[in-house]
Amino acid sequence: MTEYKLVVVGAGGVGKSALTIQLIQNHFVDEYDPTIEDSYRKQVVIDGETCLLDILDTAGQEEYSAMRDQYMRTGEGFLCVFAINNTKSFEDIHHYREQIKRVKDSEDVPMVLVGNKCDLPSRTVDTKQAQDLARSYGIPFIETSAKTRQGVDDAFYTLVREIRKHKEKMSKDGKKKKKKSKTKCVIM
């Protein structure tokens, strides 16, 4: 069974824990209790493949930012979460993405942009803004509501699919490099 290491990042209060708990335990946590770091595991079937999701729910508070490099190193894919009623959390996505790329030393890291709290009427981040940002990053965008469960499975499952595509691409690139290195030079 394939294991996928997913990391949920975003500013404090955007609903990272609520999304994760909704996926794992099928219930909505409405009281806000700032996370330092929590880890969850769940076995699911995605596109006919049974897999184990190892999900790291991270601290959004700035005082825990020193811990970010460590979990970013171990993560295979990242859910970059903002709240649709919090423009600052949307603007912060850029910083999370840049930090992930720096730590992973790669421009090509599996990510999904997630606009959470889409059940709320007080939207300050337009869907088109988020779609445009995701398009500019070359990553999928999904709106979710941890409260109603809308888009929750889709967000995590899409990230797994992005990781699969990335692994497939990397193995193809690896095979191309191996083929090239088999060419021999004969000096007579």
Results as ranks from 00 to 15, higher is better:
2 T>E: 12
3 E>D: 10
3 E>H: 11
5 K>S: 04
9 V>S: 01
10 G>D: 00
11 A>Y: 03
11 A>T: 02
13 G>N: 07
13 G>S: 06
13 G>P: 04
14 V>H: 03
15 G>A: 00
15 G>M: 00
15 G>S: 00
17 S>K: 01
17 S>P: 00
17 S>T: 10
18 A>W: 05
21 I>A: 15
21 I>N: 15
22 Q>K: 09
23 L>M: 11
24 I>N: 14
24 I>F: 10
25 Q>L: 06
26 N>H: 05
26 N>I: 05
26 N>F: 02
28 F>S: 11
28 F>V: 10
29 V>Q: 12
34 P>W: 03
34 P>V: 09
34 P>R: 07
34 P>C: 11
35 T>V: 06
35 T>L: 02
35 T>G: 11
37 E>M: 05
37 E>Y: 00
38 D>H: 10
38 D>G: 12
39 S>C: 07
40 Y>F: 10
41 R>F: 05
41 R>L: 06
43 Q>L: 04
47 D>T: 03
47 D>I: 01
48 G>Y: 03
48 G>T: 05
49 E>Q: 10
49 E>F: 03
50 T>A: 07
53 L>K: 01
54 D>Y: 05
54 D>T: 13
55 I>L: 06
56 L>W: 11
57 D>P: 05
62 E>W: 04
62 E>L: 05
63 E>N: 11
65 S>L: 05
66 A>N: 06
66 A>D: 12
68 R>V: 08
68 R>I: 02
69 D>T: 03
72 M>E: 08
72 M>L: 11
74 T>H: 12
74 T>Y: 09
76 E>Y: 11
78 F>D: 00
79 L>Q: 00
79 L>W: 00
80 C>E: 01
81 V>M: 12
82 F>N: 01
82 F>W: 05
86 N>P: 00
87 T>A: 12
88 K>H: 15
88 K>W: 13
89 S>Q: 14
92 D>I: 11
92 D>N: 08
92 D>H: 09
93 I>G: 01
93 I>V: 10
94 H>Y: 03
94 H>K: 15
94 H>N: 15
95 H>S: 04
97 R>C: 15
99 Q>T: 11
100 I>H: 00
101 K>W: 03
101 K>T: 03
102 R>L: 05
102 R>N: 03
103 V>A: 11
104 K>Q: 10
104 K>E: 04
105 D>S: 04
107 E>W: 12
108 D>C: 05
109 V>H: 04
112 V>S: 01
112 V>P: 00
113 L>F: 12
113 L>V: 05
114 V>R: 00
114 V>A: 02
116 N>W: 00
116 N>M: 15
117 K>E: 06
118 C>H: 05
118 C>Y: 06
119 D>C: 04
119 D>F: 00
120 L>I: 10
122 S>L: 07
122 S>H: 11
122 S>Y: 09
123 R>V: 12
124 T>M: 11
125 V>H: 07
128 K>N: 13
129 Q>D: 05
130 A>D: 02
131 Q>M: 09
132 D>A: 12
132 D>I: 06
133 L>I: 10
134 A>T: 03
134 A>L: 02
135 R>T: 10
137 Y>R: 03
138 G>C: 02
140 P>S: 15
141 F>G: 02
142 I>W: 01
142 I>V: 11
143 E>V: 06
143 E>I: 11
144 T>I: 08
145 S>R: 03
145 S>C: 11
148 T>P: 14
149 R>S: 14
149 R>D: 09
150 Q>I: 14
152 V>G: 05
152 V>I: 14
156 F>L: 14
156 F>Q: 01
157 Y>F: 12
158 T>D: 13
158 T>W: 03
158 T>G: 05
159 L>Q: 00
160 V>Q: 02
160 V>M: 04
161 R>M: 14
165 K>N: 10
165 K>C: 04
166 H>C: 07
167 K>A: 07
168 E>V: 06
168 E>Q: 13
171 S>I: 13
171 S>G: 15
171 S>E: 14
173 D>N: 06
173 D>G: 05
174 G>M: 14
174 G>N: 06
176 K>L: 11
179 K>R: 14
181 S>M: 10
182 K>V: 07
182 K>L: 05
182 K>M: 13
183 T>N: 15
186 V>D: 15
186 V>E: 15
186 V>I: 02
187 I>K: 15
187 I>A: 15
